[in-house]
Write a protein that binds this DNA or RNA. Sequence first.
DNA 1: TTTATTTATGCAACCGTTTGCCTAATGCCA
DNA 2: TGGCATTAGGCAAACGGTTGCATAAATAAA
Lengths: 349, 349
Amino acid sequence: MAATIKDVARLAGVSPSTVSRVLNQKGVISDETKQKIASAMEQLKYVPNDIARSFANGSAHAISLVIDISDGTAYANNFFNNTVFGIETAAHQNDYNLIITNGAAAFGGISSVERLIAGKKVDGVVLPISLVTDELLRRIEDLSVPCVILGRSEEVGAEANWVDINNVQAGRRAVRLLLERGYKKIAFLSDGDGEVFNQDRIAGYRRELAANHLPVPNGGILHGLPTVESGMDCVRVLLQDDDAPDAVICSDDRLALGALRAAHQLGLRVPEQFGIISCDNTPLTELAETPITSVDVDTFALGVQAAQILIEQIEDPQTSLRQILLSTKLIERASTMRETREETEAIHI
Amino acid sequence: MAATIKDVARLAGVSPSTVSRVLNQKGVISDETKQKIASAMEQLKYVPNDIARSFANGSAHAISLVIDISDGTAYANNFFNNTVFGIETAAHQNDYNLIITNGAAAFGGISSVERLIAGKKVDGVVLPISLVTDELLRRIEDLSVPCVILGRSEEVGAEANWVDINNVQAGRRAVRLLLERGYKKIAFLSDGDGEVFNQDRIAGYRRELAANHLPVPNGGILHGLPTVESGMDCVRVLLQDDDAPDAVICSDDRLALGALRAAHQLGLRVPEQFGIISCDNTPLTELAETPITSVDVDTFALGVQAAQILIEQIEDPQTSLRQILLSTKLIERASTMRETREETEAIHI
DNA sequence: TTTATTTATGCAACCGTTTGCCTAATGCCA
DNA sequence: TGGCATTAGGCAAACGGTTGCATAAATAAA
């Protein structure tokens, strides 16, 4: 049997409360007593029973990350990994454990998340936006544990804690890089429609064009699917035009790969005649036939931030809601690395 | 404040023990009493305090997955995701929670895994082979909680529970497919050296060749790195030979991609003149210029198995150790899909 | 010296469930 | 109708900590 606080107390010749106090650094304890207790703990190889602790002070010192197994995005790329690692790292630093639970699963009448909270096993939850519903948010609120959302939606706005990627900025940066490289007419291929992250990127794209006094090309924003085929189709359509775009920003790596291949098929050289930027920076872009410039997101940091603001809220429920936008980084690769000479020439015409 | 079992008892006019008994389906309780208790629970929206429960019966009903943040493999591909999802799913089905913890992290003197176990927060652990040391295994043994390893090493052998991929079978199957497609001389590109999974694949490769009375080609087993460049280099070397291989099995998707590109550069048509099989089935193979045939592993099932045998051991510590090898599946794509006609021709010569 | 204050520690209740043991009520048989 | 099983449920201790309150010893102030 493992040693308990009482065993330690007995061996050290003090009371359990004293041991507890040195363990938690509460109250004033003489150095001598501390010494005796320390050596007793040492001798008995004492490790506190964290369950008993959680029970006594009513908090599990754990947070939960709810996962969406049905979410193909998380499933297929490594967004999930790094975010989990980030959350775990930050949680650990604050002495919290991380419990993973499936958002879809239910436990008799109530969802497993609610059970986890109501059962006092966790003090807070981080929730991917794909699982957020008003209903769920309200229930969590009722159980009065804090919550932070990964990503955001229009509805959530400033009514919740969230961390998200600054997609507007990403869109602007992509446009800016293409303009710097001398591309004149930039299209945008989106892998979806209504999602906030796509809307944001498109907004950034529009804004940066506007800031440079450039119009959004006619039919320059296409909505496709996250597949190579869709990327090829879109680019074929784009390039039918006489005055076709000479660069494209894709909101998905498969789209971008399709764009690259369609351009090659149509005999365009990338990057010389056609520039491509993608958004997810999976290995697909780095290892494409022509490596593709991509927006990179530090998903580890995303997780760290999420866990940190969650724990802040747990430790001080008065803390006001927080929303955090993470900057992105543009990793330039061959697909946009052309000499800007062409630009100069073009201007001369 | 949340309702406790005492509140329920009071409202139902029974004692807490009776409520506990219906909750745990122990002892004999009349239907009438059950009814009263059920409606009291309903009315009070009672949810058991799982921490108090764990405390009372000395088991957290949780397992831990130890992760290796430094492991580039897990970090970069989606092996990790699916395995976690599988573990979570199986754990949940058995009413266990899943706690993720970083294998490298430490908590004062002891590692976070040990703390989790000694602190009674988990009843068992699943451990990636990359983190396994004799030392760690011994310590876990001392704490007398069961453990299952993801993957295996020579040292571990039959001395522990593990689930692993049947890499020998994968190697054999890859060879068999290539032979069926009429390839005559098959090389093997490994992305490493000593790892058991590479050794196994190579063993399978050798065995299947032997079973077909074929020799391992001279210099037919190359050890490279998990990069596209290394794949290109290896294939260039291989193809210098007059009597060069006409197919290659790669133990990594980047190697395979490199192989594909080198073949193209050297003017070989894939699959007609050169066949390629890879082993990880990441999107890289599916979306390569020529989609690459790949060994697919059901990492979700791997997680499920791991969790299941772990929980078996937890619930019945007498259960003997178990080792499970999971079958792989060969997903055939363009890189090997050639008419076997060529084979016939070749035979006619 | 006496009294007030500070410092260091002990006592015991409490957190919410579980469970071994005991008892009251019911049913059965002789 | 008394005695013995059986059934249904209550009592109270236990799980391992934490913490408010009380107190003894040591020190400072009067």
